[in-house]
Amino acid sequence: MSLRVSDLKVHYRTLRGDVRALDGVSFELGDAEILGLAGESGCGKTTLGKSLIRMDGRMRHVGGTVELDGTELPIGDDRRMNDFRFHEVSLVPQYSMSALNPTRKIGKMVGELLRSRGVTPDTAKLLGRLDAVGLPHEVLDRYPIELSGGMKQRMVMVVSTLLDPSLLIADEVTSALDVSTQKAVAKALAGFRDDGFVKSMIFITHDISLTYQIADTIMVMYAGKLAEKAPARTIVEAPRHPYTRMLIDSLPEVGVRHTDRRLSGIAGSPPSLLDPPAGCRFRDRCPLAFDRCAEEPPAAEVAPGHFVACWKA
């Protein structure tokens, strides 16, 4: 087992109180597995991604543990967590277009970054990785502004995986790209796993159809909790949670990009996470809701590897 997340709780501190962005999430990720993480904006998927590598100033680790390759990650301790970053856990951010320092030549920046982490730059390896994603070697002598969007995206992917991390978090990497590039980037990421540049990967997106093309497993989150987790094919073809079902149904057809706007197919909006209601959080929008939903449904394994948090599943 590569990654084991148990009952993870991460809150956002705000002036109005704690927002329970991540409220008790447990899952596992196997070696060489790509996990697609899907859900609406604000469901906690980005919070989960950030928690695994670097929490921002307003985030607070409230409970639960994260274990990577048998070692517990000190996710609440910024300083101690630093040892794991880049070496063990790495990130391809959603802002790849602006992730590179605009006033440094790329090669120089990579060298400085590596040395600052106590790694001697391995030029042959770097050039090999550039070849792998089809970037000319000259990019190292360029400033980021001289690269196209797709090139920057690939460059960031190369930089992030240069130390062969065990876990790579790809956070909405495709949202800034056009449809044709999206697929290429997703495929390239899958290739990184196949080539052993990274051991396993969490692919965060709001686009289930894209996830489906590269992920082994898909996890759907709703309002800070896990709704359903199953092999990719099962999620798309035989979803058990009513939310997943409505999510899949709201897609016109698999392969068509779905935008980030609130799903028109599902009436209502997610509950406030400032003071979430007891019981199932999807209750108010769920057509199947009944008395028992006032009680919180646990994530039960209904079939091997298929977890659903719903009483009706």
Binding site: R85, H87, L91, S98, N101, T103, S116, R117, S160
Partner: peptide, 24 residues
């Protein structure tokens, strides 16, 4: 900015991030 956040996520020391930030 994004490049600082990215460097921090990759565990770059404050010194390097501040150096870049100053320059920019």
């Amino acid at each position: 900015s994004d490049y600082s956040t990215y460097l921090a996520a990759l565990g770059a020391p404050h010194r390097l991030i501040r150096r870049y930030a100053f320059r920019n």
